[in-house]
Structures are given as structure tokens and as C-alpha cells.
């Protein structure tokens, strides 16, 4: 089962890519084929959101639940991967913005908040490198990640209201309803699921690698 799972995931991803180009119809009001990037852009943004939420949850568990190294590794790996998906979401978004709005970057509130999220988690990683002592590094990084959870709502809910946004409605729009063609919705859901599973799969590998690197420290091997 363990060996088959990754292959199933690759197959699923391949199917999603095929469906995004040949199965899903084009959305109305979009230039050319540009709406197809949505099937990759939205899952990237979604996964980075999940990753940062998970990093916060693991950090809380680290601080409240016995300070286990494993939780800290999990939080760090989630931030690193989340940052990667954040970059991908930003790039796919910028490409789409160039096609639709004529500029890669125009400080749309969504763009501002994703840049801030990236800055925050890059700062998290910078903090980790600035504290040499492992115990203090884990503790301070976890505290900073929890602080991130507190700031995030202001980023996501307050910021977009301050300025006018050109960004299309998110999947569930402000009127609380899903307004999307059903085949598009199917592909979007399949893609989001695929990338979420991909994230957790890479994450598991990362955590195992970190645990191995920790054990390899000479200080720990001597009895």
C-alpha cells in the first residue's frame, strides 16, 4: 500500500492536468484560455493556507504538549513547504494578472496579503537561523508562529476591505454561495485535493529527514 500510494497520487495529478486543459470549459469574462490557470493557482493558495494553519497548530502542540522535537520539525517543514506553495501561488497569480489586468503586479489586496504572509514565514525561518541553542530556537520559533495565527485574520479579512480589489470572487463568494460551472468545480476540487495530498506526502518525508539529521548530531550519539 505504501508503495502504491505515491503512484496513485502521480496518476491523479496527471489526470487533473489533463482535465484542466481538455475537460473543464472556459469561464466567461476571461481573456482567452487564461481561466485555466485557476485550476493550479487556487490549489496553490489553498495549500499554502493549509500549510501555515498546520504550522500554527503544530507550534501550539509543541508549546502545550510536552515540547516534543517531532512537533517542531513538523511546524518547520510545514512553513518551508508553505512558503514554496506561496511562491507558486504568487507566480501563477502574477501571470494571470498580466493577461487579465495588463500588469504582473498592481498591489491588489490579495497580492499584498500573500506577500505579507511570505514575509512573515521568511522571518520565521530567519528567526530559526538566528538562535543557535536548539531548545530556545524551538520555543521562540513556535511562539512566533502562534503570533502569526493572531495576525493572519487581520491580513485576510481586514486588508482586502481597505482598498478596492480587482480580484475575482473567491470560490465561495461574499454572498456565501458557490457560483461556478459544475465541471470547473469538479476539476478545481480534484486539483485541490491532489495538491493537498502532495503537500502532506512531501511533508512526511521532510519530517523524517529532519529527525534523521537531528539524530546524526555527534552530541546525541555518544551514550
Amino acid at each position: 500500500m505504501r508503495r502504491i500510494l505515491p503512484w496513485l497520487l502521480w496518476l491523479w495529478l496527471a489526470l487533473v492536468i489533463w482535465a484542466a486543459f481538455f475537460y473543464a470549459p472556459l469561464a466567461e469574462g476571461f481573456v482567452g484560455q487564461s481561466s485555466r490557470i485557476l485550476f493550479f493557482h487556487v490549489p496553490m493558495a489553498w495549500v499554502s493556507f493549509v500549510a501555515f494553519l498546520a504550522a500554527g497548530a503544530w507550534s501550539i502542540r509543541f508549546l502545550a504538549g510536552g515540547r516534543r522535537e517531532r512537533d517542531d520539525h513538523a511546524a518547520e517543514a510545514a512553513v518551508q513547504l508553505g512558503l514554496l506553495f506561496c511562491v507558486l501561488a504568487t507566480v501563477t497569480g502574477a501571470i494571470w494578472a498580466k493577461v487579465m489586468w495588463g500588469a504582473y503586479w498592481n498591489w491588489d489586496p490579495r497580492q499584498t496579503s500573500i506577500v505579507l504572509a511570505m514575509l512573515f514565514y521568511a522571518a520565521y525561518l530567519a528567526l530559526r537561523t538566528a538562535v543557535e541553542e536548539p531548545e530556545a530556537r524551538r520555543r521562540l520559533a513556535a511562539a512566533y508562529a502562534v503570533l502569526g495565527l493572531v495576525v493572519a485574520p487581520f491580513l485576510f479579512f481586514v486588508l482586502p476591505r481597505l482598498t478596492f480589489s480587482l480580484h475575482p470572487d473567491t470560490v465561495v463568494n461574499t454572498r456565501g454561495r458557490v457560483e461556478m460551472e459544475s465541471r470547473m468545480l469538479q476539476v478545481l476540487a480534484a486539483s485541490s485535493l491532489a495538491f493537498t495530498v502532495l503537500f502532506f506526502w512531501i511533508h512526511r518525508i521532510q519530517v523524517r529527514l529532519k529527525a534523521r539529521a537531528e539524530r546524526a548530531l555527534p552530541g546525541r550519539t555518544t551514550p
Binding site: 505579507l116 514575509l119 512573515f120 522571518a123 530567519a126 528567526l127 512566533y144 503570533l147 502569526g148 495576525v151 487581520f154 491580513l155 481586514v158 486588508l159 481597505l162
Partner: peptide, 14 residues
């Protein structure tokens, strides 16, 4: 500066 600015930016905009 690196750690505080992302935390402070929403506040600053408000």
C-alpha cells in the same frame, strides 16, 4: 525589523 514588520503591517495600514 525582520520579525516585527510583517506583524505590524496590518496595524500600520489600519
Amino acid at each position: 525589523a525582520v520579525l516585527s514588520f510583517p506583524v505590524l503591517l496590518p496595524l500600520l495600514l489600519l
